[in-house]
Design a protein around this nucleic acid. Structure first.
Length: 439
DNA sequence: GCGGATCAC
DNA sequence: TATGGTGATCCGC
């Protein structure tokens, strides 16, 4: 249940932490729902084990051949010529709060709410506290823990400051979140022959500290994905370089537990481990024939590339948003009026955002989390795109009404199939030359 | 196109 | 007492 893969967790007393979490959870509706999910997962694993036992020797040999072909295919596309840095701020939100409140120096600190923590300081991680843990459980693990409500505006400010630094190195740097970014420094290094990736990383970390008084960790590699993994290797306040050589790259990735790979989450890791005995990337490579037989081609390809340390594409493709959503958790209720009211508030928020973006949407979706934590989604696509509150609210409420009677703890409203909204005719238009509208 | 699931942060 | 919010993607229908 507990996840010890995060940096800084090695010191926690795992058994003690697991037991405390267990005691805090056991019997709750959340826990019951988790139990159900894990039973389902176990069935899926049993099925997979059963299926394995049916493979003939020929099938296995053929699969191995196909897997080796895939290895060759990707190996031919390996490119080690580019240089990337992945910069990751250390315990970002918590570090900002501690910086701004020296009282907290050296104390366990977390940022979040009693319901959910976003970040835990390294001091707090020693107690087994981590992000995505409810605050009330964290307090059981460490009663002295200070929980601070998130100050998003402040984090955005700092995030903007470090972004300015990144842009000095790569005008097209990619921000993954407020505290993480990927930089290509291939061009920068060409312009500065006296520098190399390692010294550049040192320089950036110093620059970040000088302007924010915060520390960052940096991964250095010939692909964005490897750089990201490497940034976790010497955390906090450290850096690690994966040499840009095929054999070194393979040695590096094969030693990793699969859970360190971005894209392999808790569920996939459990399936791979319990059904196929795959714990590390080396195991993944050794079992490539089974992966070929048991998974869809796209998953299989992802696994093969993972074992080689080859990422799909490192090009920056400026992608536009595909959906906008608002959701809210509340004290569970089955009162239709109350539920419709919450739905309507969310619809209004969505309408406001659509308005700000000058967008309309063709699909309106509803997300419902039952009192039991079961999640349901409902959606409806309309012929002509909508953007006004009245339209969005009407459709969302229709979808909601169909589910009555129901007891909910969360409602979400989402719009997708977004399109740039046609400019509305106004009197002003008579005096303006409007850009040609597509369609 | 819809709904369930998974994942990252 | 009590387990979040946003956006993306994939799979099977």
């Amino acid at each position: 249940m507990a996840d010890f893969t995060k940096a800084g967790m090695q010191q926690a007393d795992r058994a003690q932490v697991s037991q405390t979490i267990q005691e805090a959870s056991a019997g709750s509706k959340y826990w019951q729902h988790q139990q159900q999910k894990s039973e389902k997962l176990q069935q899926q694993i049993d099925q997979m084990i059963l299926k394995q036992s049916t493979f003939s020797l020929e099938q296995l040999q053929q699969a191995r051949k196909l897997a080796d072909q895939a290895v060759d295919f990707w190996e031919q596309r390996r490119n080690t010529d580019r240089s990337f840095l992945h910069v990751d701020m250390d315990a970002f939100y918590a570090s900002v709060e501690i910086r701004d409140c020296p009282e907290l120096q050296g104390k366990p600190v977390a940022v979040g709410t009693h319901a959910m923590l976003a970040t835990a300081s390294y001091e707090a991680r020693k107690y087994g506290i981590r992000s995505a843990m409810p605050g009330f459980i964290a307090l059981k693990l460490c009663p002295e823990l200070t929980i601070i409500a998130p100050n998003s505006a402040k984090y955005r400010q700092v995030s903007g400051d470090i972004r300015k630094i990144f842009e000095q190195y790569d005008a097209n740097c990619v921000a993954y979140s407020l505290d993480e970014a990927s930089l290509e420094i291939t061009g920068y290094l060409k312009l500065h022959p006296d520098l190399n990736p390692w010294t550049t990383a040192e320089q950036i970390r110093k620059q970040i500290f000088d302007t924010t008084r915060l520390t960052a960790s940096v991964g250095i590699a010939c692909s964005r994905k490897l750089a990201k993994i490497a940034s976790d290797y010497n955390k906090p306040n450290g850096q690690f370089q994966v040499p840009a050589q095929q054999d070194e790259i393979i040695r590096f990735v094969r030693a990793l537990p699969i859970r360190k790979i971005s894209g392999i989450g808790r569920v996939t890791a459990t399936i791979l481990q319990d059904a196929l005995g795959i714990k590390t990337v080396q195991d993944m490579y050794d079992q490539r024939h089974l992966l070929q037989l048991l998974f869809k081609e796209s998953s299989f390809d992802f696994f093969i590339r993972t074992t080689l340390g080859i990422s799909e594409s490192d090009d920056v493709t400026p992608r536009e948003r595909k959906s906008i959503s608002k959701e809210h958790t509340f004290r569970p209720t089955n009162d239709p009026a109350e539920l419709l009211e919450i739905c309507s508030i969310l619809a209004q928020q969505i309408a406001d955002i659509l308005c700000a973006y000058r967008c309309s949407a063709q699909t309106i979706g509803l997300k419902l989390k039952l009192d039991s934590f079961e999640i349901r989604t409902r959606a409806r696509t309309v012929y002509t795109a909508v953007y006004e509150f009245e339209d969005i609210n009407r459709i969302a409420q229709q979808l909601l009404r169909k589910e009555f009677p129901i007891r909910l703890r969360l409602i979400g409203v989402r719009v997708s199939k977004l399109q740039k909204q046609r400019l509305k005719q106004t009197k002003l238009d008579d005096y303006m030359i409007l850009p040609q509208q597509d369609e």
